[in-house]
């Protein structure tokens, strides 16, 4: 659905995006995460046709965005991080205006308007003035506006900014529902934990480069695979350590009392084989697990130079 190849963006001497590569498949809810200044908004503005890339290509639905601007606009629904609304305009008129902006008029526009209002739970507020809506309602209206022309790809730039936790949760649920309906969603945030709950894939960007990308399950598996095996034995710690040292897949071990941390490069199946060997050698193994790492820890590790900023942002929340 979305493919970014070697995307670069320079503002004078400053490189905002440095050969960024990224891919979002159809039907995915992709979390685009990174600390402030990492290049998230720049990437999203280029995808949405609001900024010209210095070099590189963006493909949406197989089309090069630099050559098919009109088609691109029809394929993308954009929700910016900060946005304003028009005064002296009703909710229904606001959506009808944007429907007309995409060439949808008359009854088709009215039915689409009601459809998207129902989707975001604002149908009852359709006769209200847009500027009298609460911040949360305005955010939902902005989402409804982005859906009015049935885009295939929804691009949301830190949409939860300034919302209270309850509204954020409801907003996330709406996004999950939209994803289940078949929309492909790209959502940026600096709060990984919130996105990891709803996203099917994530991409971590730092200093204009994609440092990690993939499906959440696969990432978790790969993180765990690089973590040491934590083996606790009831006794015979030295014998267990000796047995482990002899295994070619164990690269390093460390021992603390009856706990052994072994860096094991094997697969899940080879892990099970190792456990069997230990048990068959008569070593009383009381626990045998991979050290757990959260996505959050990984995020901090990958964006280490920004750690202090990130911690602050974690607390301030989307």
């Amino acid at each position: 659905m979305l493919k970014i190849e070697n995307l670069c963006k320079r503002f004078g001497d400053f490189t905002a995006l440095d050969h960024l590569n990224m891919q979002v498949d159809k039907g995915e809810l992709f979390g685009f995460v990174g600390p402030n200044g990492a290049g998230k908004t720049t990437t999203i503005r280029i995808i949405s046709g609001l900024l010209r890339a210095t070099s590189g290509e963006v493909w949406v639905n197989g089309m090069r965005t630099s050559r098919n601007t009109k088609k691109l606009k029809e394929s993308i629904g954009y929700v910016p991080d900060t946005f304003g609304v028009y005064d002296n305009l009703k909710v229904s008129e606001y959506l009808e205006f944007f429907a007309a902006a995409y060439g949808i008029y008359g009854k088709k526009a009215s039915s689409r308007r009601d459809e998207v209002l129902e989707k975001v739970g604002l149908l009852e507020q359709r006769e209200m003035m847009v500027d009298t809506l609460s911040r949360g309602m305005q955010q939902r209206l902005c989402l409804a506006r982005a859906l009015i022309h049935r885009p295939e790809l929804l691009v949301l730039d830190e949409p939860g900014t300034g919302l209270d936790p309850r509204t954020r949760r409801a907003f996330r649920r709406t996004l999950k529902d939209l994803c289940e309906e078949g929309y492909t969603i790209l959502i940026s945030s600096h709060i990984l934990t919130e996105l990891s709950d709803i996203c099917t894939s994530i991409g971590i960007i730092d200093m204009g480069k994609m440092v990690l990308q993939g499906q959440i399950d696969e990432i978790m598996l790969s993180i765990e695979a690089s973590n040491p095996l934590l083996i606790t034995v009831f006794r015979d710690t030295d014998r267990a350590a000796e047995l482990l040292r002899r295994n070619p897949l164990v690269t390093r071990i460390s021992i603390e009392k009856n706990k052994i941390a072994a860096h094991f490069t094997g697969s899940r199946e080879e892990e099970a084989e190792l456990l069997r060997e230990l048990v068959e050698a008569g070593i009383p193994v009381t626990s045998f697990v991979r050290e757990q790492t959260s996505l959050e820890t990984l995020f901090f590790h990958l964006t280490e130079h920004e750690q202090e900023v990130s911690v602050f942002e974690f607390e301030s929340g989307i």
């Binding site: 046709g49 029809e74 946005f83 902006a101």
Partner: peptide, 8 residues
């Protein structure tokens, strides 16, 4: 920005 992302 939102206006510029439409077909207008």
């Amino acid at each position: 920005d939102v206006l510029l992302t439409t077909n207008l």
